[in-house]
Design a protein around this nucleic acid. Structure first.
Length: 642
RNA sequence: GCCAGUGUAGCUCAGUUGGCCAGAGCAGCUGAUUUGUAAUCAGCUGGUCGGGGGUUCGAAUCCCUCCACUGGCUCCA
């Protein structure tokens, strides 16, 4: 038997006999590692631990700490669930059962039977029972003909449908216990690794996502190698529920929806408006510093505007229906974006190269028809306000404009406590270049400008091919919140299309007309979505500078109301805002209510404070901070804000 | 839009073999209490049981339909 060389991640090279597998390698390193290893990356591909390695290879042993191992684990768990389902529901047919970000699902067709939420516990029990059998996941290569005949016998039309798209010679089955599935793999070594199981949901899902096809039952679940890890996960889910912006939005009276106004149309209550206005003012100020010119445009525009922009052809049928004038029968649309209006503003007078870049900014409210089933709190609505701006510049200026926009966006995110983000650079699909408009030269220049700018800014980036808009490449900020969930917020997009369609020009140094490039950018994305994410990120405990109310004065009794009013007046002079709780309640009650309303500072005043001309300060979530003078309190506040 | 589920007071929720004027806690109002770091006491007000239609002697409860919400699917300038 010939020898092969295995290179490990630390660079060390070991000799093994050909046909060894990753499990043997793990065992030869340490028993502990062998116990914890779930899969292995062999020359860049994730493999079963039991799969023989025949040639010199670089391998990395994957444990629960590795994302790829988790995916493998969950994929194997989907098979385990399928095994359990087949035991409980004879004749059940299977679609696909992949791992997802948190767990896995399997799409199944239970025939005449139904699977409801209440059935999940018994499936979980069956899974745990089967897991204890320690069944190995066994990989076998099968011919297409054999695979087809196997699933024909099983009468599983979904697997047969999948097989149609597969090539003979590349088809593998995996078996654990009595369950055999068409599967590319890889899988964990055996079912015993799966110690904790939670099936979370059932939902309908069309076969292959096609609504003309049959609706299958999708069962979601998640599994872990240890019960403790499942408990931690469930605790995290509970925490996420507590932070849900829809719940907090109602409790803190930030925004509301009304059936009469309509679905997906949020209304900002006074406290939410205070918060939002502060955010807008913050960004407006930064933009003015950076040479932006604020404008205001109408909420509707004539059909012709959108015919010119090209949006009518692409989205007209799926928009809110047009608005007609009663006599002239002119046709207007609610604006679904601000760029066409801004293009008109750019074009209203001749522009010189000396004027560029021109940065037109507007907190523009837009209206988009979203399907009713899509609406969700503030993160998916039919009316929202973009912190929009369009930068008109020369090709040469793209990179600098990009850099300064990156800088602004990062400043904004970090100021709001979002420290964990990556930038997704979305480029063309190299296999389908026809679907993009604009010249090859322009695309290459723009893509290079984005890549360079991101690198120069030192951003953590991922590149997504095929994710570019049809009119230009873009960069999206993917932000992780306090619970580790990813959100797409700010975006920067290069656009060659609209300047062309609106025939925008500037006069160059050569006294000839040239076409400017347009950059769309929105650091927040939309105010609604951003604030929704912000609420969940900080669990409703906003940074002091944003808090709708920064303090509440809680007088011990009515006797101290005058003193409280004097404090309120003096704090207002320092631009510190709050209110007095003048109810005839005991101090404990007032504190409790204020704590629940997440007001950052409580100021308690009674006889002592009036006599000494001081105030007792209590911090939300932290308790009593002691007694200070008014000046000291103002300083505490101002220090925290700056 | 599609599938499944949910909709009872401002909020959180009880209330099914269909049957007296539909309940609780919190909030609100009134009164008493004038209070020292997470709920003072008492009384009172408040509901087209999501809207409309139907079945029935009788509907929060059963059926149809529309609306909204929740979880998915599809879509997202």
């Amino acid at each position: 038997m010939s020898a092969i060389k295995i290179t490990l991640p630390d660079g060390s090279v070991r000799d093994y006999v050909a046909g060894t597998n990753s499990m043997d390698i793990a065992m030869s390193i340490s028993e502990g590692l062998a116990r914890n290893v779930l899969a292995a990356k062999v020359n860049g591909d994730v493999w079963d631990l039991t799969r023989p390695i025949q040639k010199d290879s670089t391998i990395q042993l994957l444990t629960w700490q590795d994302k790829e191992a988790q995916s493998t684990f969950w994929h194997s768990s989907a098979h385990l669930m399928a095994e359990a389902l087949e035991a409980i529901y004879p004749g059940i047919k299977f679609g696909i059962g992949p791992p997802i970000e948190n767990g896995f699902y399997y799409d199944v067709d239970p025939g005449d039977q139904t699977i409801a939420l209440g059935d999940l516990p018994k499936i979980e029990q069956k899974m745990l029972e089967l897991a204890r059998n320690k069944s190995e996941y066994i990989r076998t290569e099968v011919s297409k003909a054999d695979a087809i005949s196997f699933f024909q016998k099983k009468n599983d039309e979904y697997k047969l449908d999948l097989l149609e798209g597969l090539e003979d010679g590349q088809i593998t089955f995996y078996q654990q216990g009595d369950f055999i599935d068409l599967c590319r793999g890889p899988h964990i070594p055996n079912t015993e690794k799966i110690k904790a199981v939670k099936l979370t949901n059932v939902a309908g899902a069309y076969w292959r996502g096609d609504e003309s096809k049959k609706m299958l039952t999708r069962i979601y679940g998640i599994t872990f190698p240890k019960q403790k890890e499942l408990d931690d996960y469930l605790a995290l889910v509970e925490e996420a529920k507590k932070r849900d912006h829809r719940k907090l939005g109602q409790e803190l009276e930030l925004f509301m929806f009304s059936d009469r106004v309509g679905a997906g149309l949020p209304m900002w209550l006074p406290k939410g408006t205070a918060l939002r206005t502060r955010l807008e003012d913050f960004l407006k100020k930064e933009q003015i510093k950076r040479g932006y010119m604020p404008v205001i445009t109408p909420h509707i525009g004539k059909k012709d505007l959108y015919v010119t922009s090209g949006h009518y052809a692409k989205y007209g049928a799926d928009s809110f229906q047009p608005i007609l004038t009663p006599r002239e029968n002119e046709v207007f649309y609610l604006k679904p974006m601000n760029c066409p209006h801004h293009c008109e503003i750019y074009g209203h007078k001749p522009r010189s190269y000396k004027d560029l870049p021109i940065r037109i900014a507007e907190f523009g409210t837009v209206y988009r028809y979203e399907q009713s089933g899509e609406l969700h709190g503030l993160t998916r609505v039919r009316c929202f306000t973009q912190d929009d701006a369009h930068l008109f510049c020369t090709k040469e200026q793209i990179k600098d404009e990009f850099l300064s926009t990156l800088d602004l966006t990062r400043y904004v995110l970090e100021k709001l406590g979002f420290d964990n983000y990556t930038a997704q650079i979305s480029l063309r699909d190299p296999n389908d270049l026809e679907k993009y408009i604009g010249s090859e030269e322009n695309w290459q220049a723009a893509e290079a400008a984005i890549i360079d700018a991101a690198a120069e800014a030192g951003l953590k980036t991922v590149t997504a091919y095929g994710e570019a808009a049809f009119y230009g490449p873009k960069l999206d900020f993917m932000v992780k919140d306090a619970l580790g969930r990813s959100w797409q917020l700010g975006t920067i997009q290069v656009d060659y299309n609209l300047p062309e369609r609106f025939e925008l020009e500037y006069i160059g140094a050569d006294n000839q007309p040239h076409r400017p490039v347009m950059i769309h950018r929105a650091p927040f994305g939309s105010m609604e979505r951003f604030i929704g994410v912000l609420i969940e990120h900080c669990a409703g405990k906003f940074p002091l500078w944003l808090a709708p109310e920064q303090y509440a004065i809680l007088p011990i009794s009515e006797k101290y109301h005058d003193y409280a009013r004097e404090l309120e007046r003096k704090l207002a002079e320092h631009d510190i805002r709050g209110y007095i709780d003048e109810r005839a309640e005991k101090i404990g009650k007032k504190i409790r209510d204020t704590e629940l309303n997440k007001v950052p500072f409580m100021i308690i005043v009674g006889e002592k404070e009036v006599e000494d001309n001081t105030l007792s300060v209590r911090r939300q979530g932290q308790g009593d901070l002691g007694t200070v003078s008014l000046q000291d309190f103002v300083q505490i506040i101002q220090k925290e804000i700056n």
